[in-house]
Design a protein around this nucleic acid. Structure first.
Length: 830
RNA sequence: GCCCAGGUGGCGAAAUCGGCAUACGCACGACACUUAAAAUGUCGAGGCCGCAAGGCCGUGCGGGUUCGAAUCCCGCCCUGGGCACCA
């Protein structure tokens, strides 16, 4: 039999299945609270059960799995759970299209995806699996909702909301950012309807200040949240309107210091005063304008700003600082949904007002000048910076910052204004007009009004029998058995709320549920959460920066205020994982560039797939799929296996170790061994740079292969070889757990490799005993030499100057300066 | 337009604190094994000039600081992402 046949005996399908079975049967990843043992809660964003896992999941979960297994080997009590974000529209769309019940569709998908995840060998505690579409889970959505309702933090209001015509439901602001639906990218419309909101704005300030605790989040994610929350400090000022019997237009401004330059007031077309202020001739025009704005005025990403258009009402308002009457305009550039829906126009110091005033010939008086005026600045030029006040009555001469304080105080004293902070963040609209979501536990009674479902009546179950036609309206409305109920208060006939909750409600607290998934008195057990929370490391895609990641922070604060937890922040450490792309764009069905993980597992095995997806780029960066790459990783595992078997065979004849080994090879391998343990551990734990950790393991395997033949002859050499092989297996264990278990077993170990301790290294043995000194002349590398480590600067200088090549180069030139850095470099300047 | 991240061989990438640029891998080439191919193994390889020794150039572009810059500073270009009338 030829040599390569002997060693080509690794059947990854069989081996992987075998160890998955062992882990499963022994409940290898089930954990309990163990006070006294350091805990580590590692979480990856749970998947939506769309049918099959995709490469994004494989990447996300492979990164997490390496860290989970590494932490286990380091002795931590690791909670690493998984579950299903199982409510949502695709299930309902499948029902409309293929006539499958959403529940059947969802549960089938989960069963399939669960088996896919098992085949990847991920170290999950399956006993804690959470499934949000089961009443055992969503009843707690309802419980939390009722608590919020009691506190006035869940409320119903008729308002303009974002409507996605394609999804036929309302969207929260976060889900309609840029004027398009987050799910299907259709332009959203504005509709006026009854809608349930959660009062996230109560927490606006804390969501912002909490960023102080999120030092281990990527900067840009915090920035996105900060921009989304959009805090701005300023003041309200009232401009009385004689034509409205002295009622006032309240404006919000961040630049009250420029108010002496306010030469007009602008209302949003939707402002409540707009109707009253336009003459009968212009009234229809205004109405048409409003309708147009509502149909689709929101800018879509990439589109230019719409041209400014204004309408002079002919009425005036009084600037309370100057006492002068200024014209009131209505214009399309003023948003009703921010501030008060009205602004003061200060054209000299605001680019938008400047543009508007120029267009309509309004005066542009300058009231703030730069502290250090540049010589080429013209008087009528726009100046938006802070400066010093001119032509501002008693405030003339003040610096902007000081003027803002004094002027706001002045307005407050006189009763026509006050300091104010506004936020861009809006309350979270959670009503969805769809079937496959958590029913909002409310009953509408003609006599008692809006009545909460009593806690004892929870859960309000999603009725199984429903018709999925795709027609307008929620399927729930057409189910009499669901809609018609008795009022819990008066017992009279009443109507059940048919809106269901946004599925982002589910994901806002699922990480608490994992701590005690079977708890049936509360959403989760306080003690279990106190032990496990917070999540020590959260990993997932950055597309949720202002969606899930802000809602989850909000819910955590709410649950804290309910007294269920002490934690205010759920995820002190968030690792934003990069996208998976192929041929330059994100993998998607519509692009037709999807790579199926199942096929890769079949062809190369889960270990090779895991290794490749981690090796090709660091976690936070984009990962470009490349067919050849996985072949390379598969080959590497083949080489490791061959190497392992060769050493195993070489070590087996017991009495053969009577000769001598090569001391150079011995030193080289021993040093590499200690260096590898150090590097792999640091790369995983400190930087999450799994790609460089893997390359270090590859280097180690290469050195092992190169030195093994020179070591097998002596007992000492064989000890080192054995130690090296064990280290190789331990280092691979977090990355390629199946092949590692297989080799570990063959090394005669009785416990699983995942129970083995991460190896330790000797820092002294990891140090290079020699240093290569680079010799530069005028900054150019000319020669190099080896010397003992930590040779003094004088020693290396002398040695460098004595090198024949250097002496030749320096002949006839004056040495002006010699820079020596220990263990590194000698630079000779001539 | 504003904000953020990035730009290094043919490709994915590395260089962790200002000190050998291109580790590790892919693709490529030569060789060995083979009747042959595949697989596997060994060796090579930034570009240009040169038989070679060696020299010059080189981390998007231009400048600067420094004995020394992929790394720090200034300006610009390009790519990706976010926000986009937020008063």
């Amino acid at each position: 039999m030829s040599k390569d046949r002997i060693y080509r005996d690794y059947d990854f399908s069989a081996v992987e299945a075998k160890w998955q079975r062992v882990w499963d049967e022994t409940g290898a990843f089930s954990v309990r609270e163990e006070p006294g043992k350091p805990k580590f809660y590692l979480l990856e964003m749970y998947p939506y059960p769309s049918g099959r896992i995709h490469m994004g999941h494989v990447r996300n979960y492979s990164i997490g799995d390496v860290i989970a297994r590494f932490k286990m080997m380091r002795g931590a009590n690791v909670l690493h759970p998984i579950g299903w974000d199982a409510l949502g529209m695709p299930a309902e769309n499948a029902a409309i299209k293929h006539g499958i019940h959403p529940q059947t569709w969802t549960l089938d998908n989960i069963a399939h995806m669960r088996s896919q995840l098992r085949r990847m060998g991920f170290a999950y505690d399956w006993s804690r699996e959470v499934n949000t579409c089961l009443p055992e889970y969503y009843t707690w959505n309802q419980w939390i909702f009722l608590k919020l309702f009691e506190r006035g933090q869940a409320f119903r209001r008729k308002s303009w909301v974002n409507w996605c015509p394609d999804c036929r439901t309302v969207l929260a602001n976060e889900q309609a950012a840029g004027g398009v639906c987050w799910r299907c990218s259709s332009p959203v419309e504005q509709r006026r309807m009854d809608h349930w909101f959660l009062k996230i704005t109560d927490y606006a300030e804390e969501l912002l200040s909490g960023h102080g605790e999120l030092g281990k989040w990527p900067e840009h994610v915090l920035l996105m949240q900060k921009n989304w929350i959009g805090r701005s400090e300023g003041a309200y000022v009232d401009f009385p309107v004689p034509a409205l019997d002295g009622r006032s237009i309240r404006v919000f401004t961040t630049r009250i210091d420029t108010i002496y330059g306010a030469t007009f007031v602008v209302l949003s077309p939707e402002h409540p005063f707009s109707q009253a202020l336009v003459g009968p001739a212009d009234a229809p025009k205004l109405q048409a304008w409003v309708a147009e704005l509502r149909a689709g005025s929101r800018l879509r990403a990439g589109e230019a700003e719409t041209a400014k258009e204004g309408l002079d009402t002919g009425k005036t308002a009084v600037n309370p600082f100057t006492g002068e009457a200024v014209p009131i305009w209505i214009a399309n550039y003023v948003l009703m949904e921010y501030g008060t829906g009205a602004i003061m126009g200060v054209p000299a110091h605001d680019a938008r007002d400047f543009e508007f005033a120029t267009q309509y010939g309004l005066p542009i008086p300058e009231v703030v000048v730069p502290e250090t005026p540049s010589p080429d600045r013209k008087e009528d030029e726009l100046f938006e910076g802070l400066g010093r006040l001119v032509r501002s009555g008693p405030f003339t001469g003040l610096a902007s910052a000081e003027a803002m304080d004094k002027m706001a105080a002045h307005a407050e004293e006189r009763g026509f204004g006050e300091k104010a902070v506004t936020y861009r963040l809006r309350d979270w609209g959670i009503s969805r007009q769809r079937y496959w979501g958590t029913p909002i536990p409310i009953i509408h009674c003609p006599d008692c009004g809006t009545v909460p479902v009593p806690y004892d009546d929870l859960p309000v179950r999603i009725p199984h029998e429903a018709e999925f036609t795709g027609e307008a309206g929620s399927p729930l409305e057409k189910i009499p058995g669901f809609v018609d109920v008795a009022c819990p208060k008066c017992g009279g006939p009443a109507r059940r709320e048919t809106d269901t909750m946004d599925t982002f409600v589910d994901s806002s607290w699922y990480f608490f549920r994992y701590a005690s998934p079977a708890e049936d008195k509360l959403p989760f057990a306080r003690e279990a959460a106190a032990y496990w929370m917070p999540v020590d490391l959260y990993i997932g895609g950055v597309e949720h920066a202002i969606l899930h990641l802000i809602y989850a922070r909000f819910f955590t604060k709410v649950l804290r205020d309910f007294g269920l937890t002490d934690r205010g922040e759920p995820f002190p450490h968030y690792l934003a994982q990069g996208m998976v792309t192929k041929d330059g764009s994100a993998m998607s069905k519509s692009k037709g560039n999807v790579v199926d993980p199942d096929e890769m597992i079949r062809n190369f095995g889960a270990d090779a797939l895991r290794l490749f997806i981690l090796f090709a780029s660091p976690p936070e960066k984009e990962f470009a799929w490349n067919e050849k790459g996985i072949e390379g990783c598969s080959r590497f595992l083949g080489r490791v296996w061959t190497l392992f078997r060769e050493i195993e065979d070489g070590l087996s004849p017991a009495g053969a170790a009577s000769g001598a080994h090569d001391p150079a090879a011995f030193a080289r391998l021993r040093k590499k061994l200690h260096q590898t343990i150090r590097k792999v551990g640091e790369d995983i734990e400190k930087r999450f740079h799994l790609n460089t950790a893997i390359s270090a393991i590859m280097e180690f395997a290469n050195v092992l292969r190169e030195t093994k033949d020179a070591l097998a002859a002596s007992a000492e050499g064989r000890d080192l070889l054995r130690r090296a092989v064990e280290t190789l297996v331990l280092a691979l264990a977090p990355f390629t757990p199946h092949v590692a278990e297989e080799m570990w077993g063959r090394l005669g170990k009785e416990r699983l490799v995942l129970r083995a301790a991460w190896p330790s290294f000797d820092p002294a043995l990891a140090e290079e005993e020699k240093a290569t000194i680079v010799v530069e002349v005028n900054g150019k590398v000319r020669d190099r030499f080896e010397t003992g480590r930590d040779a003094s600067e004088n020693e290396i200088k002398a040695e460098a100057l004595a090198l024949p090549r250097i002496r030749q180069l320096l002949a006839g030139r004056d040495v002006r300066k010699v820079v020596c850095i220990k263990n590194k470099i000698v630079n000779i300047v001539v």
